[in-house]
Design a protein around this nucleic acid. Structure first.
Lengths: 251, 251
DNA sequence: GTGTTTATTTCGGGG
DNA sequence: CCCCGAAGTAAACAC
């Protein structure tokens, strides 16, 4: 679509552009010197400095410092962003609010180096491969990769202690509780499997299986000690459908 | 400091400005129509659409869609961002790389609506209150809020299974392992406490206490079944020192 | 560097 | 709405 740029805009322009743009579905970015105050799940204060502000029409608001992936302050989508001119100082004040949880982010703008309205059109969704969900699909289709004769009885079985990834049955009919991880297994993952298996402690023989590409010796030992099994599934075929476009010739 | 703005810059300008600005410690933002391809921990593809790009001098790179708090694609700090003109298409291509884990993000820019260089100066750190660390301080100062006669023996006790928040002793001298959460307790928090308590299983009577503002019924039941205790600590006084500056008169 | 834990986690899925 | 668990989690901190 396109952008509209305001260089060193005055307070009234900042308030007007932010309000209109968001209302009309555009993204607003601003390079400013500002102070920030947050009050909600915690509370905090950020003294004067140069930051990049991003406001999206869905209520998302971000305050970025010159370093780090995460914004120093923010409001997730679903809230409302308003911009006004403070009566006392004559400076722009941007407030992002939200309920559940009730929280409030106030940005007092001391200097606006620049302001950009971006009418962005983007109906395309991100397509991802190699997720844990795909690993689940693969296991459901190829349970024998984990063990000869294994049969999946239920996927994502709900129990009173949470959701079991797979409830299965081995060649001799013994139930097997399976927890799947896409990354190297950790003690927390072992804990999780142990929690599920403990449900069946009194009902007799149940096996517990932790499936991951790898696990540290510590985790393997913990499994052995607890009578659980670690099964390495280092790689799994992605059920590629070949319909995804792709950028050619990586360098 | 200030900004420099380039409206609908050509490919050579994009490549040059991005390279120079990042090298000289400035933030670059760009409003573009682009495709994105990621390959690393997973892999993914984002088809053509309008996005906001943010590149920081520390190697952080963000691709934002018009909605949501989280960038649709990104590279955390520590990597390197390079910009070039693709020989085949003549279009700008921005590549962010990183090792450990090895990953790569490629943005093929089809149209550049605008490009901004922002020389930001920000030496100020964010000051936060109401964190879990402050909740620890409060409990250490007021253990009787959890239980009459409770005495803290050790804070952040290291064990072979990680750090126990508090190792305490009740009125009758029985050891109590305490896990503290600032948010509503979840099953993973229960797991964590259970893991710590299991360390002392063979040494005799040890109590396990999960402290949080609230917990779901499922978590409370898991605690009961496992012989652990949930203690609700809905609110705690912040030890305000009053030294933090603050924005006045909230509306 | 690995390992563990927190986080204003965000996000999505299911009941 | 809440509950639960994944995430390309990131970032801090200890070893």
């Amino acid at each position: 679509m396109g952008t509209e740029r305001y260089a060193t805009p005055d307070a009234e322009t900042v308030a007007a552009v932010v309000g209109e743009a968001l209302h009309e579905g555009a993204i607003v970015t601003a390079e400013v010197r500002c102070e920030v105050e947050y009050d909600g799940r915690t509370s905090g204060y950020l003294g004067p400095g140069d930051r990049l502000l991003v406001a999206k029409p869905d209520g998302t608001f971000l305050v970025h410092k010159p370093a780090n992936h995460k914004p120093v302050n923010w409001m997730p989508s679903g809230g409302t962003v308003t911009a006004d001119v403070a009566a006392a100082s004559g400076e722009p004040v941007i407030v992002a609010r939200r309920s559940n949880p009730r929280e409030r982010l106030e940005v007092r703008v001391h200097e606006t180096y620049g302001l950009t309205r971006f009418d962005a059109a983007d109906g395309v969704e991100y397509e991802e491969s190699g997720t844990e969900a795909e690993m689940h699909d693969y296991i459901e289709a190829h349970p024998e990769e984990l063990e000869e004769g294994l049969r999946v009885v239920e996927h994502e079985r709900e129990t009173k202690y949470g959701y079991v990834d797979f409830y299965a049955s081995d060649a001799s009919g013994t139930p097997v509780v399976i927890e799947v991880k896409r990354v190297q297994a950790t003690l927390t993952h072992f804990d999780q499997l142990k929690r599920y298996v403990s449900l069946y402690d009194d009902t007799g023989d149940v096996r517990g299986m932790l499936v991951a590409p790898a696990a540290s010796e510590r985790v393997k030992r913990a499994c052995r000690d607890a009578g659980l099994e670690f099964v390495a599934l280092p790689d799994f075929e992605t059920e590629a459908d070949g319909t995804n476009a792709s950028l050619a010739d990586f360098s």
